[in-house]
């Protein structure tokens, strides 16, 4: 397959859109900060208002970075799942990763209250670690089984089963929980992009890069998978190896985002569709960078809306991604009258 110049215009437009939404994201919030001051703070490290500088560097930039990482990682994971499983409804959580992370969080909350530990244990780090352990465990089980199974569709079903299994355990735990515990658990489930220190962000960045780099080597096999596994194999693709690589990358990226920001819905499902409708191609050489970019854009827009400009309130990010994303996808599908994956 070939890349050609027809894709330059949409790519340039998306890049511009990305910069605009990033600036809006930094500018709007409980306090509106003029774009001019944002540029000053970003490039000259000075500002007419000391408080603004703190708000931008300490809060809004880390939050924007989390949004960019999270949106792009989830979106590209969704693309990988949809291509691998040849299913337009596949999303990054289809392998049960978010359920695993949720289980980790549920156990953490329960342990802290039963063990009588002080709520200091419910810090950022403990949430990240608990979610990461939960996601990794589910991921390890699914990957181990995937290594033994020939049929790709069976992996999908096993992933779904583990997800339901974890959800059931959470259900039992929730039944015996206090209102306070439940609230903590539900609050985590709403998703949260903020509250990350520089140190946390560096760790996030490190794992993010480890997850993104293998994508370069998956472009070609992903394209051949468009013809189905048998044709891909006849083109020299080692199906088992490629399948495992796709699952490892997806698990890593999705587990990472879930650990840092909670189970953020919808982005992974919708962005690949949006991108395919905009670019009208199935070529992963185009789709992967476009999906990364679109994921980041959608997440930044959602976060800007969630901040409710000029108010003290913040809406749950999870609700916003769906509330504003779903109508866009429906509109595009009705307009183009078709959707492929």
């Amino acid at each position: 397959m070939n890349s050609n110049n027809t894709y330059q215009i949409p790519f340039v437009s998306l890049l511009l859109l990305f910069i605009i939404v990033l600036m809006m994201n930094l500018s709007f919030g409980s306090v509106d900060i003029p774009i001019q001051d944002i540029f000053d703070i970003l490039f000259n490290k000075t500002s007419s208002n000391e408080n603004w500088q703190i708000i931008i560097t300490e809060f809004r930039i880390p939050k924007a970075i989390t949004a960019i990482f999270g949106g792009s990682a989830l979106a590209v994971s969704g693309l990988l799942m949809q291509t691998l499983f040849r299913n337009p409804l596949a999303d990054p959580y289809i392998l049960g990763i978010s359920s695993g992370a949720s289980l980790g969080i549920a156990i953490l909350i329960l342990l802290v209250s039963i063990g009588g530990f002080s709520t200091i244990f419910l810090s950022n780090w403990s949430f990240i670690i608990a979610a990461a352990i939960g996601a990794s465990l589910i991921m390890l089980v699914v990957l181990t089984m995937a290594g033994k199974i020939k049929n790709t569709m069976s992996i999908l079903i096993i992933g779904l089963m583990f997800g339901s299994f974890a959800a059931a355990i959470i259900g039992i735990m929730a039944y015996f929980s206090t209102a306070n515990q439940l609230q903590q658990y539900i609050a985590w489930g709403f998703g949260n992009l903020g509250n990350h220190s520089t140190q946390e962000l560096w760790i996030y960045f490190g794992f993010y890069i480890i997850g993104i780099i293998p994508l370069l080597f998956l472009i070609k096999p992903l394209n051949s998978l468009l013809l189905g596994e048998n044709y891909a194999q006849s083109l020299g693709v080692n199906i088992k190896k490629v399948r495992l690589s796709i699952l490892v990358v997806t698990s890593l990226l999705t587990g990472l985002v879930t650990a840092f920001s909670g189970p953020i819905a919808f982005v992974g499902l919708a962005v690949p569709h949006l991108t395919k409708l905009i670019f009208n191609t199935s070529n992963h050489f185009i789709l992967i960078p476009a999906v990364l970019l679109n994921g980041a854009i959608l997440m930044l827009i959602s976060d800007t809306i969630a901040q409710l400009p000029n108010s003290e309130f913040t809406l749950p990010i999870n609700a916003i991604t769906t509330l504003f994303g779903a109508p866009i996808v429906i509109w595009l599908i009705v307009r183009k009258r078709k959707i492929n994956y």
Partner: peptide
């Protein structure tokens, strides 16, 4: 073939992958 946005040219070009 699984559903996709592939054009005839792209499909034939996939034959060049090796």
């Amino acid at each position: 073939l699984p559903e996709s946005n592939l054009t005839v040219f792209e499909l034939v070009a996939l034959g060049r992958q090796p």
